Simulated scan of single mutants.
Amino acid sequence: MSQTKKNETTSASPRPKSGDSQNRRTAIILAGVVLVLILAIVGIIGYPIYVAPFRRTIITVDNVTIRMDYFLKRIKLSGSDPIGMITQLTNDQIVKLGAPQYGISVTPQDIDQNLRSIFQGQSGNASGTPSEPEFKEWYRQRINESGLSDAEYRDIITIEIFRSRLQGYLADIMPKSAEHVHLYVITVATQKEAENIRARWAAGANFTDLAKELSLDTAAGQNGGELGWFPKGGVLTSQIEFQAFELSTGNVSEPLPMISEEQQSDGSTAPTIVGYNLLLVTERANRELDANALQVLRSKVVDDWISTQRENYNIKWQGLHNGFDSETYAWIKYQMAKGQPKSTQ
C-alpha cells in the first residue's frame, strides 16, 4: 500500500516541459552571441586607438623595421625629441648594417664584456672582478629601469660597440693632411655695420686695422682679426667653412649672418641672427692636420661617414597616416606627456 502511494506521489510531481528547456538553451546561446558581438565591437573600436598605433612601423632601413612602441621606449629613456630620436635610430641601423663591410663584427661575448665593464665602472670596483650574482642583479635593475627587453637592451650595446670600432677604423684611415685656409674675421652686430666696413675695405682701408677698431670679437680683433689656419672637413661651422673655401684669396666676403638657436618666450627655440661676420682668406695650402683638428675630425668621422652612406640604403620614415608628419609628432608628444604605454607584443 505504501509503495503504491509513493508511486502515486512520484508520478504526481510536475515534469519540466521540453519547451522550457529549449527556451533556456536558446537564451544562453543568444546571451553568448550578444557578449561576443559586444567584445567584437569594443575590439573594433579600441584596436585602432589603443593597439594599432603602437604596432605601426615608424622606421625602415632596408629590411630592418622599428615599431612605434620601441620608438616611444627610446624617447622616454633618453628624453630626446622625436625628430632627434628618429634620426639617431636610423643612423644606428646604418652603422649596424654598414660596419661589417670593413670586417667589423660584434659577438655575444663582446656584449657581455662591455656590460661587465659598465658595471665595474659604476660600482667603483674598476680593478676587481664582480661576482656573478652582483652582476646579474645590477643587470636586472638596468633592464627594469630602462623598460626595455633583454634583446632590446643588448641591441643598443651592440650598436655602441659597432660605432666605437667603426670610429677607430675610419680614424686610422683618415687622411692626415687637408686643404687649409688662413682665415681672418670681423664680427659686428648688424648687417649695415658689416656693409659699411666692407665698403671701407673696398675703398682701401686695411682689414686688420678695421678688425682692431671695430670687431666685437675682441680676442681676434687684437690680432687684426686673425683666427689662424683651418682645414676643410668640419672644424669650422658648415656655414663659415663653405664661405671660406669658396672665397678667393685676398677678397672679403659679403656680410655673413651668425645664426644661433635662441630660446623663445614659450620655451621653444628658434634660429635667430645674433650678428654678422666678414671673412678674409689671405692664404690657402695643403697642410698637415694639427692635434686639435685631428681630434675634432676623428670625433665626427662616423657622422661624416653616415652622411655618405645614407643613399646606399632604402630609408623610410613613417607615421600614423601620411608619413612622419605633424599629426604623428603631436601624437608622440602626447604619449610622452601621459606616460609611455607597455609593449603590445
Rank of each mutant, 00 (worst) to 15 (best):
K5Y: 11
K6A: 14
E8T: 14
A12G: 08
P14E: 14
A27N: 12
I41Y: 06
Y47W: 13
V51I: 15
T60S: 15
V61P: 08
G84I: 11
G84Q: 15
I86C: 11
K96N: 11
G98Q: 04
S105G: 04
V106G: 08
D112G: 08
Q113L: 09
G121A: 09
G128S: 15
S131A: 12
S131N: 13
E132Y: 01
Y139H: 13
S149T: 15
D150T: 12
E152C: 05
Y153V: 05
I159P: 08
I159F: 09
R163M: 08
S164T: 12
Q167P: 00
G168H: 03
K176Y: 08
A178E: 09
Y184M: 10
I186N: 06
N206H: 04
A211H: 00
Q243A: 02
A244G: 00
S248L: 03
T249Q: 15
M258P: 00
S260Q: 14
E261F: 08
E261I: 01
Q263H: 03
Q263F: 04
Q264P: 00
D266V: 01
I273D: 07
V274K: 11
V274L: 08
E288S: 14
L289R: 07
S299H: 02
I306G: 06
R310A: 09
K333M: 12
Q340T: 14
K342V: 11
T344D: 07
T344W: 10
